[in-house]
Design a binder for these strands. Structure first.
Lengths: 337, 337
DNA sequence: TTGTAGGCGTTATCAT
DNA sequence: ATGATAACGCCTACAA
């Protein structure tokens, strides 16, 4: 592999001069600069990051730790957001996945330590409370799509499930619905709690009584191997003569099944029943006819801004708050008129 | 940061002895070994990969280059397969994403070169023909979910779309269907061609005439911003009095829309019409009622075995063939009886 | 403006 | 079985 010395010899200068050119340092004649650049191109010299890192003791690398890649479709967008930020700021990204295994996680932290990773983005694939298991490794860390059990122990960035669900519910109330059904996500998910709480608060604020809302459980059990009774539950809710005029689903996957249940009962959407989801999972939300009113999760921005947050942390900038919460925009489509 | 010297001093041995212990080299007394290990634990010493790499000129790092993370849900499983392989074999993974931008791609190759990446897994998010744009960087590379324009110019690993589609079609023929409709994927996708070709071949072999099959285009245009006419096309096909008794969809997303079209027409699945998909995209295939018969793509294995292939390549092992093709298993569910 | 000496943390080589 | 020394590729500090 061609090193700085090869270039120096070939160009007839010292290695330090080559180093200066490579790093765009001042005090190099135009002539020398050009000559060195030419030789670099000729020889195909590329600086060795490892060597640079040893000297400067800065790796310029961010680490990403994910838990369950691919259980939630599209949450890979978080990773894309991080990568884009890294690309824009000349940083590189090491990736590791715990698969939810604690021992694996500790190994990963060790590996990151060994690579002198400067900062870690600890990414959860679904919104939740979490406690990183770092062993005795100490690298500045930002939690993405999750927050720590002990408030303030880590900086974090998360979606605002509460606000998204509140806006969605208000959207339905504004359109005159007086009876609204709700099918819950798996209660183990933090999003499930927040979204339901917002639904309850928003309906209460609008003067709804308890018998105007009908909350059911759609999924439960361990994440990944959950029991799914959405179809039956939706069929049941919609079969009643005094069925709700709108149905709020914990996410788009649930909404899909509610659609199928409604169609199976011969109901027309949105005339007989309005259905809304959450996540804006487009393979579903745009495939449904009429297209699904839902709330978008800012996955990409969680990653992109999370990386930025980590960078500020490393730069010693004080962060305004431990938790940064990003809004979830309402995406109004035809499924509720 | 604590270095090998600190450990050596504290343990009262030489650097080299510590190095021996760390690397589990022979010729160390039990006593020395234990003593050094204890000091390592006490001081929290973690070897510096950069330094190791400089000496050994081996980075032990694989690079992953992806094109469009997250346009295809779950193809992130490819990346997970790679990571798992890396974890099992003590290697680390650097990740970069081109977003389909050629200039970005060349930068990435440079960066990988700078990090002395040992091998690259070049991952496409949908099955296609591709030509990596490496500039003058030369790192052993395996293409995953794609193959090169020039046969033999790269090793590759791909799913067997042809076999999957053939098995699926035969499955329908065996069940007695005499008129079968087909809704095509975007023709820009390699999978679209292969799946359609297999469908045509399988029906022809079974003695079908041209008027027993009805092939329509469901999507077209640039990937990512395509025109989607699946719902209309499906509605049109299924409205005819002499409609097919089975409908093969280019993928599960198309199948979802075909389901909705069928339900919208009041048809019952699978009694009035059988529908099958491709991809086994489970948020859809398991949500549909009856659940969708489809073909699974071996994403995880593409990654896992792709990494293994790269490793063999680096070890100088001869690979049996340039292209390795993994089977796509039929997943028979209730949507065709 | 350019060059020299030295050292970062590790391992290879050779000695003891 | 253990240690001394040099070297990997680069950069910092200083000298010319």
């Amino acid at each position: 592999m061609v090193s700085i010395k090869d270039v120096a010899r070939e160009a007839g200068v010292s290695d330090k001069t080559v180093s200066r050119v490579v790093n765009r340092e001042p005090n190099v004649t135009r002539d020398t600069f050009d000559k060195v650049e030419r030789v670099i191109a000729e020889l195909g010299y590329v600086p060795n990051m490892a060597a640079r890192m040893i000297r400067s003791s800065r790796s310029n690398i961010f680490g990403i730790i994910t838990d369950f890649i691919s259980t939630t479709p599209y949450s890979g967008d978080i990773v894309r957001g991080i990568q884009d930020w890294a690309g824009e700021h000349g940083r590189t990204v090491l990736l590791a996945n715990t698969n939810g295994d604690a021992e694996k996680e500790r190994e990963i932290w060790k590996t990151f330590q060994a690579h002198r990773i400067e900062g870690v983005l600890y990414v959860s694939m679904y919104h939740r409370v979490i406690e990183p298991d770092r062993g005795d490794v100490d690298i500045p860390t930002v939690l993405v799509n999750c927050h720590p059990e002990t408030p303030g122990s880590y900086k974090s960035i998360e979606p605002d499930d509460y606000q998204g669900s509140r806006d969605l519910t208000r959207h339905l109330i504004e359109r005159g619905h007086k009876r609204i059904g709700y099918i819950r996500l798996n209660p183990r998910l933090l999003g499930a709690e927040l979204r339901l709480a917002a639904f309850r608060d928003a309906t209460r604020e609008a003067g709804f009584s308890d018998d105007q809302i009908d909350v059911r459980l759609g999924m439960e059990g361990l994440i990944g191997g959950e029991q799914n009774r959405v179809f039956q539950v939706a069929t049941d809710m919609l079969s009643h003569p005094d069925r709700p005029s709108a149905l709020v689903c914990g996410n788009d996957e649930i909404a899909l099944q509610a659609y199928l249940a409604a169609l199976g009962l011969g109901l027309s959407i949105p005339n007989d029943i309005c259905i809304v989801g959450y996540d804006d999972f487009q393979v579903v939300s745009l495939a449904l006819k009429p297209e699904l009113t839902t709330v978008a999760l800012p996955y990409y921005d969680l990653g992109h801004r999370g990386a930025d947050r980590l960078n500020r942390l490393l730069g010693g900038e004080p962060l305004k708050s431990d938790r940064l919460v990003l809004p979830c925009p309402l995406v109004a489509r035809a499924s509720c008129g």
